[in-house]
Amino acid sequence: MKAFTTHRGIVAPLDNANVDTDQIIPKQFLKSIKRTGFGEALFFDWRYLPDGRPNPEFVLNAPAYRGASILVTRNNFGCGSSREHAVWAVRQYGFRAVIAPWQPRGETRVPAFADIFHNNCVQNGLLAVELSEAEVEEIFQMVARFPGLEATVDLDEQRIVLHLPEEIAFHFSIDAGVKEHLRHGLDAIGLTLQHEQDIAAFEKSHDVQMAR
């Protein structure tokens, strides 16, 4: 997995909430037994017309966002199925980071990304950035005013900078374990296998039938 430290690129806006994994990559592409080739199918039903031509109405087809590598979207991105193909598609299209808003609920936050999708991001070096609703709204507005706007996402500093004549910066928080994983592009299986002895010892006393 490619390590993530800092990345600069064009920001593309996808102004939809609850974008589900069926939308990110429809089922017909899940038949592949390979790990590559999903970028072409990203947002397939939105991105292409029934005759296969690019849909000019769809935002990623607009010339300003050609080559975009940072996606800004709304809450609950990646809900639905566990298909990692969705993250492969986002990543292979060329996105390195996705920005979405958490939502307030009393004292707590409703996460911006669906749970399994978020885990899949971590496994594939796709940085999922959570900002407040107001901050995400500001990015949407800036992108609307300056289509093709570039931003830098700095994982070390946990900062996003919009490259405007007068730069705007946002701080984001991230789980320490996730940050480590992304910064070093870690191989989770390799790391876990370092605890092989612990697993073997656990198995000796653990009854999988009754789980006691």
Binding site: E84, H85, I116, N119, A188, T192, L193
Partner: peptide, 12 residues
């Protein structure tokens, strides 16, 4: 779980 996690469970 996602496919990377499937691989993780298969292996560990």
């Amino acid at each position: 779980i996602g496919t990377s996690e499937v691989e993780h469970v298969l292996a560990t």
